[in-house]
């Protein structure tokens, strides 16, 4: 599974400051591999993307692409406040 994460927005709102990360989950050692699989499971991401925005001012927006072993990609647009802190920490580690 490949996870790609592009971030934009935030206080600066500078499009060119957007970050981009890519990780091959299958190449990761345990327990990182398992944590990534659970955090970026597509059904879970779809649920998170539906969560209401409590306050959106200056928050980052993530565009998360999950590609499975059959090269099937799913794309989710999720704001920072919709992701649990543990997932944000994983993103920071990537």
């Amino acid at each position: 599974m490949i996870i790609e994460i592009a971030a934009e927005g935030g206080f600066g709102g500078i499009a060119a400051a957007a970050s981009h990360k890519r990780i091959d989950v299958d190449q990761q050692a345990e327990p990182m591999r398992q944590e990534l699989c659970e955090a970026f499971e597509p059904d879970q991401l779809a649920l998170l993307a539906d969560k209401p925005c409590t306050t959106c001012a200056d928050r980052l927006t993530y565009r998360i692409t999950v590609t499975d072993s059959q090269q099937h990609s799913q794309i989710f647009t999720i704001r920072e406040d919709q992701l649990p802190p543990e997932t944000l920490d994983l993103i920071d580690q990537m």
């Binding site: 206080f11 306050t55 920071d92």
Partner: peptide, 8 residues
């Protein structure tokens, strides 16, 4: 982290 925010 390249950001600051108010979360409500």
């Amino acid at each position: 982290y390249n950001n600051a925010f108010w979360n409500g």
